[in-house]
């Protein structure tokens, strides 16, 4: 109990007797880490922008309309139609047009929109867990943490499916059937790096969830760990907003 009495007031106090940022050490360090991680992701996305910009823009597609029927050899057809060329960046709508269990229909952006909504929703459940933590409502925190973990796992499943489809069509780190080599390489590196962040986030969420169930934070007197891991989780959502913008929308 000796450690507990000291917690809420002293925890936020620095050596000078004041906390300049009005947050605990751990939370401040999480922010600093996220700032450095934001630089990493910015560098990756800027590299993407630079490489894409140094190629010629995609050729406008006037052949395939969304929701129209397409054959199994879609990629070859597009190559023959001259929409995938080595000098031109491929139009994302012609590459990411698959949806699980629906074959033979051109569905650009549908699957990735679903992934985006899953991630936004898991972000909401995370922030609701943080809010419940402020009220010391253990059961509610546990419920929302579980929902967040499920959302994260669903997102990872979606990404695994997308990678499988992409690799199945012949996309590799060293080349792809859509055009410039760097197209698939950048896709794998950036979405892979983001996916690994999601994976780490899910693992952290699982640890925190177990701790919530064990009553660790109830004993500690505050649910600040949920807030810290929440910051990380929202950051992953934030990065996805830009990955979604650069890789799929533009």
């Amino acid at each position: 109990m000796a450690t507990n009495t000291l917690s809420t007031e002293k925890k936020f106090t620095w050596g000078g007797g004041k906390s300049p940022f009005n947050v605990s050490y751990g939370k401040l360090m999480m922010w600093i880490f996220l700032l450095s991680d934001a630089f990493t992701f910015s560098s990756l996305l800027i590299a993407y922008g630079f490489i894409r910009y140094s190629f010629q823009s995609p050729i406008p597609n006037t052949i395939v309309k969304p929701l129209s029927e397409v054959g199994h050899n879609f990629v070859e057809q597009m190559n023959e139609a001259g929409l995938f060329l080595q000098d031109h960046w491929p139009s994302p709508e012609l590459v990411f047009n698959h949806f699980p269990f629906i074959h033979g229909i051109h569905l650009p952006l549908f699957f990735v929109s679903l992934m985006t909504f899953i991630l936004i929703f898991s972000s909401v459940t995370m922030v609701l867990a943080v809010e419940a933590g402020h009220r010391m409502a253990k059961n509610e925190v546990a419920k929302y943490m579980l929902l967040t973990i499920i959302g994260g796992a669903m997102f990872l499943g979606c990404q695994a499916w997308e990678w499988t489809t992409f690799i199945g069509e012949g996309a590799r780190l060293y080349g792809n059937p859509y055009g410039p080599r760097s197209f698939a390489a950048l896709f794998f590196i950036v979405t892979g790096f983001h996916g690994f962040h999601v994976f780490s986030g899910v693992m952290l969420n699982v640890i925190i969830y177990i701790n919530v169930l064990n009553g660790t934070y109830e004993k500690r007197g505050h649910y600040e760990m949920v807030e810290k891991v929440g910051l990380y989780w929202h950051f992953v959502d934030l990065v996805w907003v830009f990955v979604f913008t650069f890789f799929y929308l533009i």
Partner: peptide, 22 residues
């Protein structure tokens, strides 16, 4: 994207309600 980022950082990550120094 930046508009969405503003809402995620501001409200979800609680930045709007933190001290200005942070």
């Amino acid at each position: 994207g930046i508009v969405k980022a503003y809402y995620i950082v501001g409200v979800f990550m609680h930045m709007k309600f933190e001290r200005k120094t942070l």
